[in-house]
Each structure stands twice: as C-alpha cells, then as structure tokens.
Design a protein around this nucleic acid. Structure first.
Lengths: 156, 156
DNA sequence: CAAAAAAGGTTTGATATTCAAACAAAAATA
DNA sequence: TATTTTTGTTTGAATATCAAACCTTTTTTG
C-alpha cells in the first residue's frame, strides 16, 4: 500500500465527510433560526419573513419588484408577503414620489431590530466558522467558497 | 496604520464575503437542483422529493417513522409524501414481517437511479469545492465545517 | 394472562405559501 | 397621441405542512 493510496483513501473519506456536512448545515441553520426566533421577542415572525427583512435591508428604500427579484418570488407572492410584514409591524409601504407605480419598502424600527439581530446571529456563526485560522487558512476557506460559487454560476 | 490594522481590516472584508457566500449558496443549490431535474428524465419530481429519496437511501429498508424523524416531518405529512413517491414509481411500501405496524420503505429501480444521479451531482459539487487543495488545505476546509457544526450543535 | 399504554401509520381539517393569469394605474416609447 | 411596458394587486388553484383524532398492532404492567 503506497503513500499515494493512503492519501487517496484519506481524501475520499474527507470528501464524504464534507459532502455530508454541506448537506446538513443548511437545514440545521434554518431550524436553529426558527428556534431562536421562538425564544425571542419575535416569536410571531417566521424564518422566511426574517429573510425577507434581510433582503429589504437597512439601506435605501427598495421597490417591491427589486425585492421579488432578489428573493426569486413572483410579484403576486411578494404582495402577500409584504402585506403580512406590514401587519406585523416590520415594514412601511409608501408611494414613491418620482414614480407613482412603485411602492417604497423600508424597515420600521421593529424591522431594523430584527435585521440587526439576524445579522448578529450570522456574524457569530461566521466567527465560529473561521475560529482559530490565520490569514492563509482563511484564504483557503474563502477559496473553497469561491470554487463552489463558480460551480453554481456555471450551472445557472 | 499598523500591520495589525491592515490585517484586521482584511479579515473583516473576508468575514463579510464569507457571510454573504454562505447565505447565498444554499438557495442557489436548490434552484440548480430544480433546474437539473426539469431537464432530466425526472421532470415530474420535485427537489423535496429528491431529498426524501436521499433520506430513504439505497441501504436497508426504512420505516416511515425513521424517515420522518430524519427529515423532521410529522408522520401525517410523511404519509402524504410517501403516497406521492409511490404514485411516481420511486418507492415500494411493504408491511414489515416482524412488526405488522411498520411499513418498510425501499427504493424502486427508478428511485435508485434518481438517488445515484443526485449523489453524483453532490459529489461533483464537492469535487469542485475542494478543487486544487492539498491535504493540509483540505484539512482546513474540513475544520471550518466542523467548527460550524459544533456551533450549530450547541444551539440545538 | 388481561387490561392499559405506547407506537406506527393514516385520515381529516385548517393554515401557509406559492404561482400564473387577469387586472388597473402610471410611465416610457413609438 | 396611441401603444407598449412596468409596477403592483387580486384571484383561483395547487401544494405542503401540522395537530389531532383514529385504528391496528405491539409492548408494558398490574
């Protein structure tokens, strides 16, 4: 049994491990986000709604169409979603003064609090993801994610 | 401006990049899986159904309850899902001979073909994720994923 | 061993989410 | 000005989910 074979076998095991890990991670994140919400002052908010709030973001007002595009939702679906976000006090809807067709969407104070809480969670997660790495190692991790994005972009 | 500040600033940028990448990857994978299915001989199958088939797997027959647990679905929901999988010719349902309460779920030939196709897709994805890395670099990537899993496990 | 409890699976009724298509109003274009 | 495009909404249908009630079968317990 050569060193090459050992290395090959090792790589195969790592490959399987990483495959499994990638497949599991996202479901777990969603479940934990759901759980954390339930415990918080946002127990009336679903994970999907948090992701909508994330897409709206703190920055300039966005039109419904922009958000729909970003979230890959039909305009009809977004209308329903935005109505719910408004009902739950997360967003404001105002007519755009330049273009009367468009509705400007902005976060309310409550929406901004939720946005920041969600960001903090993700930030903590990335901290842990990268815990203990030096700059070179960090570049390796980044490179892997770039690889993945490239692969996905090719298939889009 | 010290080296420390530069490094800190660099890390912050990488951190943001990685945060964004992690957030995007999963949605993209699902969309591409959907697209690839549409093009294939499995255009009648949804991504959710593929993931059910993955949970059933090629190995020993599984009970409906085992699958429901793995997929975090209620038993009622799973009954509906399995009925659809059966209708689409992906699974067999047989009474377990040891315990008449249990239904054994196994993949049909078509189900196995789908399982292998889905596995092949994921395998190719991991290949690309890890493309060009040596063993040490591979360990770094694995370490990052272990970090992430640990973080998620703590919150579960 | 008989009665009670538990476990596996199904059905039912209610709620969520989504889409496509039809629609109205405003803006852009020809 | 007349036509087309864009933006957002409404509507109707399809899908996915859950909890609770239910029936069998198995396990536990008195």
């Amino acid at each position: 049994m050569s060193v090459y074979d050992d290395e090959t076998k090792f790589k195969k095991a790592e490959h399987d491990f990483i495959n499994e890990a990638l497949a599991n991670v996202y479901d777990n994140i969603l479940r934990i986000e759901e759980k954390e919400l339930k415990k918080s002052s946002f127990s009336d908010i679903t994970v999907k709604e948090v992701h909508l709030v994330h897409a709206i973001s703190l920055h300039e007002p966005k039109s419904a169409s922009q958000i729909a595009k970003k979230m890959h939702l039909s305009r009809g679906t977004l209308t329903v979603n935005l109505r719910n976000l408004e009902r739950k006090g997360l967003i404001h809807r105002t007519k755009n003064s330049q273009d009367q067709r468009v509705t400007d969407i902005t976060l309310t104070k409550r929406g901004r609090v939720l946005y920041r809480a969600h960001n903090a969670f993700h930030s903590k997660m990335v901290d842990r993801f990268l815990a203990g790495f030096n700059l070179d190692e960090l570049k390796v991790v980044k490179h892997a994610l770039v690889n993945l994005q490239d692969f996905l972009d090719e298939l889009t």
